[in-house]
Write a protein that binds this DNA or RNA. Structure first.
Lengths: 254, 254
DNA sequence: AGAATAGTGTCTATCAGACACTATGCA
DNA sequence: TGCATAGTGTCTGATAGACACTATTCT
């Protein structure tokens, strides 16, 4: 056993990475927010070739060390870094999760690029802080509605489609809607987020009942004060992350 | 617009991939089956360094073209190829789906390797066909039970954990259990698969009711003949893949 | 006063868990 | 004949959808 370990140490000392061709690995980001009861995705206008002038998802390459001891950054760290660089958002304030890896050989006309897509959820209170990064001519919150605009660059329409599918599915069993409301929120505000994500309407009364269940489960707690969006001021609540600990398996991924 | 396209064509003609360091990209496979009412995962004994002699998940590198025109294979195709090479299974007869991408900088002691993990579901009727591939000393169906054996090589215990989580969650809303029974099956056989996956027991009567609902929904159809596993022979059924078309959004990923 | 939203309560259908029960084929 | 498994039926509690209704505040 120890002999095997010594042998392995020797093997690793002598090991030189073969010269098999390697792909570039990128991260692409599907950044969502909800503005005016509408689900939006962040797109940037490409300032460089290829697809110069087209809208695209933000993204960039994973930094890989040159070999000798230096290994580079984690894939998730790369997603966080690109989020900060390309949008100006602080990763600590944003929900970020790996989505799917897209590896078609010709998805980038320049060379072989395998992209590990992630999606992010940004509170509407933070959405206005977004600024264009260095290699983008502009940033825009685009509606995810089907009719919304020209095709995106690369396979980004496909990535967006998968991200939408994921978020629409996950919102039913994981507490991700809370990542798309301000720190404190009213029942109607949370309902509006669900409606924007699912693309349907929910009965106000029934949604309220669901809301109350989350409150008795300790997932939601009342916050001080009231907020008046329309006519009558409404109570405000906040998300209790620790409340989830009471519910088994609710931490599946968050 | 056309000017831009010409410009882009020229750009691509001139484009030479930069010499940024690139990672190796691999696929790892979590291959499940159910044998003797127990969920098993396929592990191979490593015949080479590193982790020589340890059990590991099957896997291998994605083939990337050398550049000039040749781009190499799709990531999913690489997973199919590795499945065939390392286990002898025909990818056409096996359910295979991308799981998650593992990209910690030091997950492989040799060099930077980013692995796109997939999971596969193999019918018990095909499980005995598995044979060891070229760079494995042995193959084994190992129980996924927590107490089952020594740690796996690399971060494969973590990959297995994520795969289990995915399958346990997905079996409740997608028809993946049918990939783990023979072409025709009894109610008890399907129940046994659910029990193996979830690690619990289901009331036979209640499960039967659920089964019947799938039948009226057109997802399951009765097949000719009966099968006798214990005492009394039971009716056999088959999965009707097209039956899902009647149910909206049931095709989410399958 | 009227409009609009906040908030409450009821009826019904669906589904899961617990469990009692009958039916059938094999040893 | 007994036993194990196949297969049926009932009761109860939780939840979602539809919808009627009251309460409060702003204009």
């Amino acid at each position: 056993m120890s002999a095997t370990r010594d042998e392995e140490a020797a093997y690793l000392r002598e090991y030189r990475a073969g010269d098999w061709p390697r792909p570039s690995v990128a991260v692409d980001l599907v950044v969502f927010t909800v503005l005016d009861t509408d689900l939006k995705v962040l797109v940037i206008r490409r300032d460089v070739h290829p697809f110069k002038g087209a809208w695209a998802l933000p993204g960039g390459f994973v930094r890989v060390g040159a070999g000798e001891g230096e290994r580079g950054e984690d894939v998730y760290a790369a997603a966080q870094r690109e989020l900060a660089e390309e949008t100006g958002l602080d990763p600590a304030t944003v929900y970020l999760e790996q989505l799917y890896t897209f590896g078609a050989p010709d998805r980038d006309p320049r060379m072989r690029v395998i992209s590990v897509a992630h999606y992010a959820l940004v509170r509407p209170t933070l959405a206005p802080l977004v600024v264009a990064g260095t290699d983008a001519a502009a940033v825009r919150w685009r509606s995810v509605a089907a009719e919304a605009g020209e095709p995106l660059a690369f396979d980004h329409d496909e990535i967006l489609r998968v991200a939408l599918e994921r978020v629409r599915g996950k919102v039913d069993y994981a507490p991700i809607a809370f990542e798309l409301v301000p720190e404190t929120f009213t029942v109607a505000e949370l309902r509006s987020v669900y409606e924007a994500i699912k693309g349907t309407t929910y009965d106000a009364g029934n949604f309220r009942r669901r809301f109350k269940r989350m409150q008795t489960d300790g997932v939601i707690a009342q916050a001080p004060g009231k907020r008046t969006t329309g006519t009558k001021p409404a109570r405000v609540y906040r998300f209790v992350r620790e409340g989830l600990l009471a519910r088994p398996d609710a931490l599946a991924d968050t």
